[in-house]
């Protein structure tokens, strides 16, 4: 079945701990890239529109670099990445869920990017010595992620200072927080110190933006299972590839 799906060779099985962690990060980055790109032409104003698209493109770049790290010998085309069956993806609900309305997308961008550097630190601490190129990639990625965080934080803080905007943000946060807390919980179970640091960063950021994170018991992420909104996204990826199967991306 895989030979019909994959143009070249199918991706090798993921069977070691490093690749499992990195694929989760790669697929999350890919999904975030896609979700950001969905706002192209639709963001509230031009500067935000271009910035969101630019950040999304960065995330695709990070995903691509990670795929190359995970499957160095696989002659990979971007098309093969998106042709994977749903059960082969390892993204999580936070990145897979649709980001409508806009403030939900912003809150997701803010939470995801606040947690992300701690995931990289955790991965490089555990596998930096064995996974060639991981530490250098983490360093390069952080140069860009620094600005992603700055953008999300600055925007959320400014909107948080306006009553009507803060109410909408809080509503979106109530909606998104459980999936973000699941991601924190996952990180905590992999790396307790980075999990605690990430949780602290999120709580501080919320406080600075006058937003409240209501505590819910975090659910355990099962990355083999897709969020309901992922189905249409995965179908879109395949549709785009099918539009011009020979395109090099």
């Amino acid at each position: 079945m895989t030979s019909a799906i994959f143009r070249n060779s199918p991706p090798p099985e993921i069977n070691d701990a490093a690749a499992t962690i990195l694929l989760a990060l790669a697929d999350d980055e890919f999904m975030m890239g896609h979700r950001h790109s969905e706002w192209l032409g639709l963001s509230p104003f031009l500067e935000e529109d271009l910035t969101t698209a630019s950040i999304g493109q960065d995330e695709f770049g990070h995903a691509r670099a990670l795929y190359a790290l995970i499957w160095p010998s696989w002659e990979m085309r971007d098309a093969d990445v998106v042709r994977r069956p749903p059960g082969s993806w390892r993204s999580c609900a936070l990145t897979e869920m649709a980001g409508v309305p806009w403030e939900k997308s912003l809150i997701r961008h803010w939470l995801y990017d606040l947690i992300e550097p701690f995931r990289w630190t955790s991965a490089t601490t555990a596998y930096g010595a064995s996974a060639t190129g991981l530490s250098a990639l983490a360093e390069r990625v952080e140069c860009e992620e620094h600005f992603h965080r700055a953008h999300a934080t600055a925007l959320v803080q400014r909107l948080g200072a306006v009553d009507t905007a803060r109410m909408r943000l809080q509503h979106a946060l109530d909606d998104v927080a459980p999936t973000a807390m699941a991601l924190l919980h996952e990180l905590d179970s992999i790396d307790a110190s980075q999990g605690a640091a990430a949780t602290q960063a999120v709580l501080e950021a919320a406080q600075q933006a006058s937003l409240k994170i209501t505590h819910v018991s975090p659910t355990v992420i099962d990355r083999r299972v897709r969020h309901a909104d992922a189905e249409s996204a995965l179908r879109q990826f395949v549709d785009v590839v099918a539009f011009d199967p020979d395109a090099r991306w």
């Binding site: 500067e47 271009l50 910035t51 630019s54 600005f147 953008h151 600055a154 400014r158």
Partner: peptide, 20 residues
């Protein structure tokens, strides 16, 4: 040119829209 609420956000938008 670009529109931004203040200097800090103007710098962020400048980076993402003019110096990519």
């Amino acid at each position: 040119s670009l529109d931004a609420p203040d200097d800090e956000m103007a710098a962020l938008y400048c980076r993402e829209t003019y110096i990519r």
